[in-house]
Amino acid sequence: MKELRAERGWSQQDLAERLDVSRQSVNAIETGKYDPSLPLAFRIAEVFAMRIEDIFLKG
């Protein structure tokens, strides 16, 4: 997710605002410390205009 965000030139704060979550949430997801819920994963996929399985890896 970090790479996708960087490709778009967004800061963590930018992405957080697009997802309507805190910057800490974005940071925790990017660093692998937190797995988003399915609804949040869908929002992330929508923001990047991609499929969930193309953003998140299994396991």
Binding site: D20, V21, S22, Q24, S25, A28, I29, Y34, P36, S37
Partner: peptide
């Protein structure tokens, strides 16, 4: 708290 990470 709607932010699920902060809620956790």
């Amino acid at each position: 708290l709607e932010d699920e990470y902060l809620r956790m």
